[in-house]
């Protein structure tokens, strides 16, 4: 059995927690954020590949779990592509700036 610590119970008790969260946000750079997202997508892709392989090898017979895993992977990949497009758009906007 896992024992968890009791989290923030109400808003009055969470001032120190909020301060800590803000500090964390300052420390984590944009790069870390992107890397986190990429790692998540990579994990989903790998899970999808593993489930597909299991299905082909006959270790599982749940067709829907294969389909759902690949859908999850494809949606998160598209999300990352969307974010990338936004970033590049912003970068190009800045590069076009007159100096």
């Amino acid at each position: 059995m896992n024992v968890y610590q009791i989290g923030m119970v109400n808003n009055t008790a969470n001032t120190s927690g909020a301060a800590k969260a803000a500090e964390n946000n300052e420390n984590s750079s944009f790069k870390d954020l992107i890397m986190d997202a990429l790692n998540n997508v990579n994990a989903l892709e790998q899970e999808s590949a593993k489930i597909t392989e299991d299905f082909i090898a006959g270790r599982t017979d749940n067709i829907h779990s294969v389909m759902i895993a690949s859908e999850k992977a494809s949606i998160s990949l598209q999300f990352v592509m969307e974010v990338r497009n936004k970033v590049i758009e912003a970068y190009q906007e800045i590069m076009r700036m007159q100096v």
Binding site: N2, Y4, Q5, I6, G7, M8, V9, N10, N11
Partner: peptide, 12 residues
């Protein structure tokens, strides 16, 4: 969910 999560979700 652990009890603490129930407690904090309910209180918010």
């Amino acid at each position: 969910a652990p009890f603490s999560q129930y407690l904090s979700e309910e209180s918010r």
